[in-house]
Amino acid sequence: MKFDEEFFNLGYLDTLSYKDTFVHRLDPRIKIIVTFIFILFVVSFNKYQISALLPFFLFPVFLLTAGNIPIKAIAKKVLFISPFAVFIGIFNPLFDRQILITPFGIPVSGGWLSFFSIIIKFILTVSSALLLIAVTSFPGICEALSRMKMPKIFVIQLLFLYRYIFVLLDVALRMVRARDARAFGNKGKDIKTFIRLVSVLLIKSIDRAERVYQAMLARGFNGEIKVMKKYKPRFADIIFGITSVLLFYIFRNYNIANYFGEAIKR
């Protein structure tokens, strides 16, 4: 039952976001900004850079450990979308055959360097984005976005997406189970049934949208939804923001990994 697993998997990331740790308690705005700056710094490196990127792993590792997030949850998802990154870089070794470095006497071409650079950048950016979701409750993110002047209509759409994705998946799950209960073997699992299933799901969703709208009207909805403001920036938030950005800046401008290497050699 593949669908069941995926369903519970999605809920899992959401469950994680309701833990109560230091990083979970941080102001979502700070976390979003820091993650955004982190991503900017990471992608700003040139295409042959590898060693200087390594210190940046500190950030996802910090979120992972301080947020008490099991690494498996994140690693699986990163792995799941990794084919995209692999395909982007896969042809680099073929086109760029110029030997750039020869560590331990092994010649390494520019193509391989840029390939690994892409993979590392991919892992860094995707894992930190996933971790941002895992350590911040979704309503928290929406609140932050709306306070950072994101147009309200998008924020509301996100809020409803979050609320009803679970309901929708639940309906879909029950439909799939009902189908499987009467589809013996592979009969009834063909594309034709699938299309009908999806169309029924669409109709059900439209019906539900109608009912939800009625429920909103019943409570005086007039086109405006107020997003609650729960967070106030505290001292810890500011310290976290400043130190992270400062560290990113140092990592960006000084090749820490290189210094370590030099120091060990000496």
Binding site: F138, P139, C142, L159, F160, Y162, R163, Y164, V167, R208, R211, V212, Q214, A215, M216, R219, G220, F221, I225, K226, M228
Partner: peptide, 17 residues
């Protein structure tokens, strides 16, 4: 109830009205 409760948290939902 899934039609009635449409906000992301219980508190916000009760506050909606």
């Amino acid at each position: 109830t899934d039609d009635q409760l449409f906000m992301p948290t219980v508190y916000e939902d009760v506050a909606f009205g």
